[in-house]
Design a protein around this nucleic acid. Structure first.
Lengths: 183, 183
DNA sequence: CCCTGATGAGACAATCATGTCTCATATGGC
DNA sequence: GCCATATGAGACATGATTGTCTCATCAGGG
């Protein structure tokens, strides 16, 4: 009887990723529950998005943990991070876009935590001589988010094969488009 | 007396870039005109977005022309393209996001034209041995759009300095984050 | 088997954005 | 100065969405 809150959130995410303007009624139908029940568990649309935000942050921080960014080379860490983040790429992409709409409102402190970890990772990579120092950690962080979102969308519309998601992102982010001598 | 249609579109773009959900009333106020006048010139919100789309495509195709992608090395062409596109980056970023919402609806043929030009540019670069062949032209095209959008946003929120916009995008797209031997 | 609690369906009012309309005003050409 | 035209302000109806409520139904525990 007890409603599976997690399951509702996951189907809501799946819907909102593709149609960010979906109504509460559509969300409810997608989750296979009534609109009233949806309202009983999430006070309103804002509360629903907030819950999705919590879910996304949790997933992203779990991916950061699973990636063990400190082990091995920075390149290996980045590959593990992108691999770990792939299942949540759509949700994270949705949340990043949604976040950009929040004008001056306070952002979820979880994003700041995650940003700091990613940014620090790129900084360490620079200090160890693995990453270029002329691209700022803040930019590399944003670029990573942007490419994950672009990659998720490209896969969704079929411009990139699902199995190429990780490769395309990692290779572009690490090596760029230029054909270098060692290749 | 004649209303400056171009000026209205530009202020609408400036507003919608930051707040994609702005109402017609807000758009009118931002343009310094009445809502009725706005409706007289643009039948509805859809027509307004369509007009912005035309404006954005026109700007992007003008940038493609100005970049002279065929002259010199592919790298030089890409640098010129990003420089030429910078003034319209915000508008283009908004339109790309907006386009992703159009479910199965037909996309503006202008995007297909532009996509084809960019994609062909990357393909030529590959054929001439300047670009890696393991990253598909379609992905490089999407990544370019994504990075332009990310860059425009990063500049807008102050994470990247305005004068670094071009450099950050071009360098990441071409060379990637990895520190290579020649550096 | 009964009873408690959650659910689904639907009614309902309130809100908001939209699109249309009217009317008074102002601008610019003649 | 006059007139045609465009504009601004606002009223109005409409449709969509939201949030709340009621009520009948159903499932599970005791």
């Amino acid at each position: 009887m007890t409603l599976d809150r997690e399951q509702v959130l996951r189907s809501a995410a799946a819907l909102l990723i593709h149609k960010s303007t979906a109504t509460m009624d559509e969300v409810a139908k997608a989750a296979g529950i009534g609109r009233a029940t949806l309202h009983r568990h999430f006070a309103g649309r804002d509360a629903l998005v907030k819950a999705l935000e919590d879910l996304g942050i949790q997933a992203f921080e779990a991916a950061l943990d699973a990636a063990r960014l400190d082990e091995g080379t920075a390149e290996e860490g980045l590959r593990r991070l992108i691999a770990a983040v792939e299942p949540s790429a759509g949700l994270l992409s949705f949340l990043v876009t949604e976040n950009q709409l929040f004008e001056g409102d306070q952002v979820h402190e979880g994003w700041n935590r995650a940003d700091a970890r990613v940014s620090a990772f790129f900084r360490r990579g620079q200090e160890r001589g693995e990453f270029r120092i002329d691209l700022t950690p803040a930019w590399l962080t944003e670029a990573l988010y942007g490419l994950i979102g672009t990659g998720a969308w490209a896969v969704q519309v079929g411009r990139v094969a699902t199995q190429d998601f990780q490769y395309m992102i990692v290779e572009l982010l690490l090596g760029g488009a230029r054909r270098s001598v060692e290749q």
